[in-house]
Each structure stands twice: as C-alpha cells, then as structure tokens.
C-alpha cells in the first residue's frame, strides 16, 4: 500500500483534501440510496474505477483486499433473502424477492465503499492522507497518533513475529499458543514496546521535541483539486437523483419497438 501511495499519477497529484472530500461524498451518496436499489448504484462504480485506472493502481490486488473483508457483510446480508420473501421483480418467468434485491444492494454498496476507501489510500499514501485530515481539522494529537501507530506497527509486528517463531520452535509447532505461553510472550512484547516508546521519546527530546509534532506539508489546493472534488460531487448528486441505469435500460428496451 505504501508503495502505491508513493507512485505518481494525475490522481496521486490531486490534493489529499480534495480526494478525502470526494470520497466522503461518495460514501454518503452510496449509502443514501434506498435499500432495494441495485442497478442505480452501478454508475457510481465510475469513481473507484477512475481512481484505480488513472492512478495506475493494481485492480486485482485491491479486489483481493475487498474480498477478504466481505464475510461480515455477507453474514448479515444473507438473511435478507430468507426473511424478505415478497416478490419484487421478475427475470423472465422467475420472481425475485425483495430480500434478494436488498441483499444484492448490500453487497454492491459494500464493494463500492470498500474499493473507494482502498483506492483513496492507495492513491494518496498514509502520510499525505493524515496531513490532509489534519488540514481538514482532525485534532493534531489524533493525527500524530495515526502516524506513530502506522510507523511502529511494522517494527512491533516484526518483533512479535520473531518471538512467535522462537516460541513455536520450542513448542510442538502448533500455530496457536497455549494460554500460559501467550501471556508471557505478549507480556514480553508489551514490555519491549514500552521500552521502545521510552527510547523514542528520548530521541524526540534530544531533537527539541516540545509536545508538538510539526508536519511540513504545504499543499495549496489548485483549480484542479477544486474541480476534482466539485466534479465528482456533482456526478454523485446526479447519479443519486437520476437513475442512469434505468434510463439506459429503458432506452434500449424501447429501441426495437
């Protein structure tokens, strides 16, 4: 993800704030559709597709991430077809119940919002994203918290995995630990993490840290950035108000007659 965020493309160059605002509007637009809506949501795929395409992001990789996250939505949504059996539409001779529509709608929304979120991160990068959030008013201690969390996740994750490997070698080789071992291992990891926090603090202080972490990011939004946000928001509003899919479908089905 990091590497994706550092690539260069017209989308990467857009101000982080513009992308955050557009994505927030996108998520709101998607969520505001009525629960049985499926086809009218389709035009909205243009947003994640555009980010992925213009940003040169690996679509397969992002798709895999979306799929990994799917089970929860699937779990809660799958009951809809069972519980809502009122017929709502026909495909040829087969009546489709409302539950299936709402289920399909859940899955489509899920795919839309998750892929847009991932694409946003992938075409912005965490530090620009955080800087953008800060400029949009997110409290600075929280922004710093996000940055530190992200930074040390890798360090402590590595440390944890090394300890786990060592523990596995000495045990029966089971993937999961006995509770006793777990407490000791995680406790050790925690103590080490605390020591590390102390050493980081020491190195911050020795470079003049005074409680405030300053980020050097001077992005001034240009007309491109404003156009990006406004253009997409207009598109979302349009797609929300007019069912484009329905228009196209009707136009086609009327065509032959």
């Amino acid at each position: 993800m990091d590497d994706l965020g550092r690539m260069d493309s017209p989308i990467h160059r857009i101000d982080a704030r513009a992308k955050i605002i557009a994505t927030a509007a996108f998520v709101l637009a998607v969520m505001s559709f009525p629960r049985y809506e499926v086809s009218a949501l389709m035009p909205l795929f243009a947003y994640p597709f555009a980010l992925i395409a213009v940003g040169n992001l690996p679509a397969g990789y992002l798709l895999k991430k979306v799929a990994v996250a799917a089970p929860f939505a699937l779990f809660v949504g799958i009951f809809n077809p069972l519980l809502d059996r009122q017929p709502m539409g026909m495909i040829g001779p087969v009546a489709i119940s409302g539950g299936w529509f709402s289920f399909a709608s859940i899955m489509v929304r899920f795919t839309l919002t998750v892929s847009a979120a991932l694409a946003l991160v992938a075409c912005t990068g965490i530090h620009r994203l955080c800087a953008g959030l800060k400029m949009l008013g997110l409290p600075s201690p929280f922004v710093v918290q996000l940055l530190f969390l992200y930074r040390y996740f890798f360090v402590i994750g590595d440390e944890g995995l090394r300890m786990l490997r060592a523990a596995e070698m000495r045990s029966t080789g089971a993937r999961t630990l006995a509770f006793q071992t777990y407490g000791t291992l995680i406790g050790h990891l925690l103590v080490r993490s605390m020591d590390r926090a102390q050493r980081i603090y020491r190195s911050m202080v020795s470079r003049g840290f005074d409680g405030e972490v300053r980020l050097l990011r001077r992005e001034a939004p240009g007309w491109r950035d404003v156009a990006f946000a406004c253009g997409w928001i207009a598109f979302f509003a349009f797609a929300r108000s007019w069912d484009l899919a329905e228009f196209v479908g009707r136009w086609l089905s009327r065509g032959p007659s």
Partner: peptide, 9 residues
C-alpha cells in the same frame, strides 16, 4: 426494477 433495470445496470 426488473429486466430494464438489470440491463441498464
């Protein structure tokens, strides 16, 4: 929505 919606979608 039925056929037209699905096709359109």
């Amino acid at each position: 929505t039925s056929v037209s919606g699905i096709v359109g979608g």
